[in-house]
Amino acid sequence: MAETRARLTPVDPVWDRITREAEEAIAKEPMLGGLIHSVILHHKSIENALSYRIAMKLTNSEMSEQLLREICDEAHQADPSLAAAARADVMAVYDRDPACHRYLQPLMYFKGFQAVQAYRVAHWLWTEGRTDLAYFFQMRTSEMFGVDIHPAARIGQGIMIDHAHSIVIGETAVVGNNVSILHSVTLGGTGKEDQDRHPKIEDGVLIGAGAKVLGNIRIGHCSRIAAGSVVLDEVPPMKTVAGVPARIVGEAGCAQPSVSMDHMFGG
């Protein structure tokens, strides 16, 4: 019977590690015990914890925490890919951010991670035709985190948004898997044109702080965009671009720039 129960119990290494780290954190800092219990240890799964954390962050006088939590729970129950992407995002932040030493940190403290998870619920609402509620999530995410992601944008998994200040991702933008974005990045349009007007960021791209990528252009996989650049033309795969306007200045320098987080020229 015990063997049967073990086979039926879902294995979730990411959530298991988060809960273990939560218990260790409380032992070291008991004053945070109530907060850590409410965010992590009171929940049976990462899905429940994400719903709680998003709801607590986005609640205001216009929308109660309980209602927001019910919406998030509905999204996670209907689409398991939301939590799967969140797990990949946790590991991405841990692997790439030298300030992240534990899996629990993104869920507890990092607004870039939290903003992306709120976007994922908003995107689910958008695809379900619940556009006004999706816009509400976008508004509150922007107000709370300084991260403005249109709910129609399509974003992959394994995403790290470091520092997450003044991030803008437009309606028709596409961001692939394993992309790293630093603060003050804009993936925007170039005017008042309608239809498909925002950048397409392929897998493994590293976008430096303050970079602006504008228009319906493709940024090839595993490329690098230097800090402060303004990118108006397509970027081939595995290249480094820099400047205003940005120009190719070399190779990407490694196979996975978004993972190495190496911003130095030299390739």
Rank of each mutant, 00 (worst) to 15 (best):
residue 147 V to N: 01
residue 195 Q to E: 12
residue 123 H to I: 07
residue 11 V to I: 14
residue 146 G to M: 10
residue 173 A to H: 01
residue 187 L to P: 05
residue 45 S to Y: 12
residue 118 A to V: 09
residue 251 E to K: 15
residue 154 R to C: 07
residue 228 G to V: 00
residue 238 M to D: 10
residue 81 S to W: 09
residue 182 L to Y: 13
residue 213 V to C: 04
residue 222 C to P: 05
residue 266 G to K: 12
residue 230 V to K: 01
residue 160 M to V: 14
residue 45 S to N: 07
residue 103 Y to H: 15
residue 235 V to Y: 00
residue 163 H to T: 06
residue 242 A to W: 09
residue 151 P to M: 08
residue 178 N to I: 08
residue 146 G to K: 05
residue 126 W to G: 13
residue 147 V to S: 05
residue 91 M to W: 15
residue 36 I to R: 04
residue 5 R to K: 13
residue 172 T to L: 00
residue 138 Q to T: 09
residue 63 M to E: 11
residue 145 F to L: 03
residue 42 H to Y: 13
residue 225 I to V: 11
residue 115 A to W: 08
residue 124 W to K: 09
residue 60 N to E: 12
residue 91 M to D: 15
residue 266 G to V: 04
residue 157 Q to D: 15
residue 129 G to E: 10
residue 204 G to H: 00
residue 104 L to I: 15
residue 216 N to R: 09
residue 154 R to W: 02
residue 222 C to R: 13
residue 66 Q to M: 05
residue 237 P to A: 07
residue 143 E to D: 09
residue 139 M to C: 14
residue 110 F to G: 10
residue 130 R to W: 04
residue 150 H to Q: 11
residue 173 A to I: 04
residue 170 G to N: 00
residue 215 G to R: 02
residue 1 M to I: 09
residue 176 G to M: 07
residue 187 L to I: 00
residue 140 R to A: 09
residue 58 L to Q: 07
residue 235 V to P: 06
residue 208 G to S: 02
residue 84 A to I: 08
residue 143 E to I: 04
residue 201 I to P: 06
residue 129 G to F: 06
residue 161 I to K: 08
residue 129 G to R: 09
residue 51 S to E: 05
residue 13 P to V: 06
residue 222 C to Y: 12
residue 13 P to H: 04
residue 135 Y to F: 14
residue 140 R to M: 13
residue 122 A to T: 05
residue 70 E to M: 09
residue 120 R to E: 02
residue 68 L to G: 05
residue 31 M to S: 15
residue 2 A to V: 14
